[in-house]
Design a protein around this nucleic acid. Structure first.
Lengths: 192, 192
DNA sequence: CCTGATATTGCGTGCCACGCACTATATGCG
DNA sequence: CGCATATAGTGCGTGGCACGCAATATCAGG
């Protein structure tokens, strides 16, 4: 995961990928939720310093490029849980892992708002959040030992859903609460 | 919701909508998850007995047409919960409502499998399942009185996730359990 | 039967995803 | 250090899709 772990080719590739997704999200934010159709592939590619064809080698749709950061973030949830001490109770471990991952740094309000409140991005945004479920379910299974049960998968889906709902609440206008507090509150609904 | 509740125009419209989505799902199943790209708009429209342009008046993408039935099903979850007796505990009411809705009749294995195991439909499928969340959260809020809390939304997301996970498990090859049993098991993970 | 409203359709347009072939650049080995 | 090979970037062409617009067909109700 660290850059040092890859050779030059892989690091260049990663940098290009991030340049494209970053440009895509920035342009989308500039146009706002109602002008997404105006964000053309050509603009994204140009802003990222690559050809339109190269953009399409990394992402197969504008929505995927725009939501790539959120998807990457989700993919890290499982690993974040695994890095918690093994003797910590599941609920505390999950809450600590999620809060650590999602508040360091605090998410970008504009980006999250763009992703979560643009109808044309809804499917891709849900996909991005649900990317957490697979690895998270595995991490839960190894932690609890209930490997062949429905429990890990259901719990992972519930946690991913709670994170999503917390994000929605955090974005509501005039909400002074820090994201961490809302996250903790939402997750506490899952672990009664 | 009953056909008698609409005038002739609305019923025709509904019939057309169902003809299109039904044709779309049928053709998608015929081609299988790996041949989705071969299901062309023209074929869907022809199979439904309408022009391609009319297809596009009802759905704005093939994925939306294919997943329409699942989306409609999800939209009914809130109402199903509301129709449970008010004095029933939340967990029992939810479980009864969901099982009633999702096993009467038993879902179509081929259709559900197509929707849930085709990567290109993943976003739309997640959207379809998440359609339950809004109405379901409202139904939970009115039932529990916790209107302004995160609880209803988080619980709704968890329930929708549990239904989705149950569907995935039910589709696993060589699984003899009836859907109702898996659903009950999955939902019991949400209500500890 | 007539009239206004709604549904259906045909046509044209801009854009997008992607296959293919070619070039440029990095990597590893003799 | 050069050379062979693998991998990234690019240009071009193609098929298809979503949708705006305007014309037409169909229907409800007086």
């Amino acid at each position: 995961m660290n850059d040092d772990a890859m050779d030059l080719r892989a690091r260049n590739s990663q940098a290009t990928r991030e340049a494209i997704s970053h440009a895509a999200l920035r342009l989308a934010i500039e146009q706002g939720p109602h002008g997404l159709a105006l964000v053309r592939v050509h603009d994204i590619a140009t802003a990222a310093g690559v050809s339109p064809r190269t953009y399409n080698n990394y992402f197969s749709s504008r929505a995927e490029a725009i939501c790539a950061f959120q998807a990457d973030q989700s993919r890290r949830v499982g690993q974040a849980l695994r890095s918690r001490p093994a003797d910590e109770p599941l609920d505390q471990a999950v809450i600590a892992a999620v809060i650590e991952l999602y508040t360091n740094p605090e998410p970008d309000r504009a980006g999250l708002s763009m992703i979560m409140s643009t109808p044309e991005l809804e499917g891709e945004a849900l996909k991005a959040f649900s990317m957490a479920e697979g690895p998270l379910a595995e991490a839960i299974a190894t932690r609890t030992g209930t490997e062949r049960d429905l429990f890990p998968a259901v719990m992972a889906a519930a946690i991913a859903g709670a994170i999503r709902v917390a994000g929605r609440r955090w974005l509501e206008p005039g909400n002074p609460e820090p994201f961490a507090a809302i996250l903790r509150h939402a997750l506490s609904c899952v672990f009664p």
